[in-house]
């Protein structure tokens, strides 16, 4: 073990690079599904305006942890979350926090694109409407256009906004869903394997988009593709059997991981 890395509660923390503002700070997070513990004592500080990748084998807890960040685990009856998760210092598990408002601040994109059975326009306009973000039709139009542009989809759909969202290709649908997430002005965007159902070209478009979104958002992406984590993220967290094993700059995790389990997973060896 190199001396310059920090080990707390079994996690190896590489020294942070630069001084990125902390957006999401988790401390001692445990998650149980019924009496089975899915996450053990996860503590991590996730920087703003950066992409953080969660990697690890299936069932390692990376998606479970991702779902803690917008309280998606609330929707599972048997799930119990303890520990602290703060966004900009504010405890999100506090009783006073409305999960619906929280999920507007913390958007989520899933593995399979899930547009509403509505028009392209209404898919993007839905969030701003229910959250009352637009006072006029013009303002709503402008939000939809800006969001579609930020998601890199505007040029492809500008002339057919009234067509159903699910008439688009898979890659376009995923960008539509990203536009929908952006439309409510979130601060954090969670992505759970956003490219696993897409071909390499559509994947490249999403990755390019993720890189652009980094300017304005805190992005957290769960991916099974190590190459994708290496391409899009600045920080990488490796999870194994419900533990956060190692967290550090992506370049270091992929060239010089400190923990044997990280090394074995990344190089494709028997663990």
């Amino acid at each position: 073990m190199a001396e310059d890395a920090n080990v707390k509660a079994g996690t190896v923390y590489h020294p942070a690079e630069g001084n990125r503002k902390v957006k999401v700070a988790a401390s001692g997070v445990d998650v149980f599904y019924a009496d089975k513990q899915a996450l053990h004592d996860v503590s991590v500080e996730i920087g703003d305006r950066a992409v953080t990748a969660f990697i690890g084998p299936s069932g390692c807890g990376k998606s479970t942890f991702l779902r803690c960040i917008n309280r998606m685990n609330d929707t599972i009856d048997t799930a119990r979350v303890s520990g602290s998760i703060r966004i900009d210092g504010e405890e999100i598990n506090d009783r006073s926090v409305d999960p619906v408002l929280l999920r507007a601040r913390v958007g989520m994109v899933f593995q399979k694109p899930n547009p509403f059975p509505k028009s392209i326009f209404d898919n993007v306009a839905y969030g701003p409407r229910i959250h009352g973000l637009a006072v006029s039709k013009d303002e709503l139009d402008s939000i939809v256009e800006t969001s579609l542009k930020k998601a890199g989809l505007w040029d492809e759909v500008a002339d057919r906004l009234d067509q159903p969202g699910n008439s688009l290709s898979g890659g376009q649908q995923q960008r539509l869903v990203i536009a929908r997430a952006i439309a409510v002005n979130p601060e954090v965007i969670l992505m759970d394997e956003p490219c696993s159902a897409l071909d390499p070209i559509a994947t490249a478009r999403i990755e390019e988009l993720i890189d652009e979104l980094r300017e304005n958002y805190c992005l957290i992406i769960v991916t099974h593709s190590m190459a994708q984590a290496a391409r899009v993220s600045q920080m990488t967290a490796f999870f194994h059997l419900g533990h956060l094993v190692e967290f550090g700059p992506t370049e270091e995790i992929f060239t010089n991981p400190r923990d044997r389990r990280t090394q074995d997973y990344i190089t494709g060896r028997f663990g």
Partner: peptide
Amino acid sequence: RQPLASDLR
């Protein structure tokens, strides 16, 4: 093979 970590080194 896209070697990583020690394999890349």
